[in-house]
Design a protein around this nucleic acid. Structure first.
Lengths: 120, 120
DNA sequence: TAAAAACACTTTACAAAGTAAAGCTTGGAG
DNA sequence: CTCCAAGCTTTACTTTGTAAAGTGTTTTTA
């Protein structure tokens, strides 16, 4: 074997971002710099109320999103924005994702496996 | 907003595969159809013994890997192979990963964000 | 040839996290 | 006025990831 130790460690795969639900939330927010309201995110990501609420807490604690609540009179309205830090971390995460994909692509070539996904 | 519900749900992100450690293990095994021994995987993925052991259990239970143990005389030797099902699921997972990346790329274009990662 | 260190794991225990169910408040429809 | 729906939060549960300790063997090395 020729690889160096740690070749497949993927340390850059941030645990906060590397989660199905939060990845969806962040991607949707990344696509909508104008922000999204609670209900929209819920629908876009197919999450339950409680689920979304909890994940937003995590993302807010990490300062990856900003949450603005309007509740004066009328129904409460929660709008969520991705922060600059959030954009940054998200993009770093994507870089790591590409690394994974490229490692796999290289393996397909090397081992002669049938490509299961098309090159970008 | 124009997207359909569920656009960012990423249901294809299989929970068994969508985990840092296991993703590394599978990628390394995918790259080595001849199999890898316990110690090699441990080194390649920078995992502790217990950690690797546990994740291998999960992967074996899901029939994504095959584990062969030789223990007659001499030190025990555990060799791990990716199964055909494992290759399949892994490749499906990669397809979903590309979806995520492409959604992000599209968002960068649409919102005019600075690319944080280069196109494949 | 004992004792010690290294290998090769497994088991156990703990802490964090994801998920679902229930709860609470306000708004609108009938 | 009553009932149902919208818009969340809180709580409780279950799974999971991670690390620490444990077991047995096999080389060193003194």
């Amino acid at each position: 074997m020729s690889e160096k130790p740690g070749s497949f460690a993927y340390d850059g795969l941030d645990r906060v971002l590397h989660e199905k639900a939060r990845l969806g939330i962040l991607t949707s927010l990344f696509s909508h710099p104008e922000g999204l309201v609670f209900g929209e995110i819920k629908s876009l990501c197919t999450l339950t109320d409680g689920n979304l609420s909890r994940h937003l807490q995590v993302l807010e604690r990490e300062e990856l999103v900003e949450i603005v609540k309007e509740s004066g009179s009328g129904r409460p309205k929660t709008t969520v924005f991705i922060t600059p830090l959030g954009r940054e971390r998200f993009q770093e995460y994507l870089v790591e994702l590409q690394t994974v994909l490229q490692a796999a692509k290289a393996a397909e070539k090397a081992t002669g496996a049938q490509p299961g996904f098309s090159p970008a």
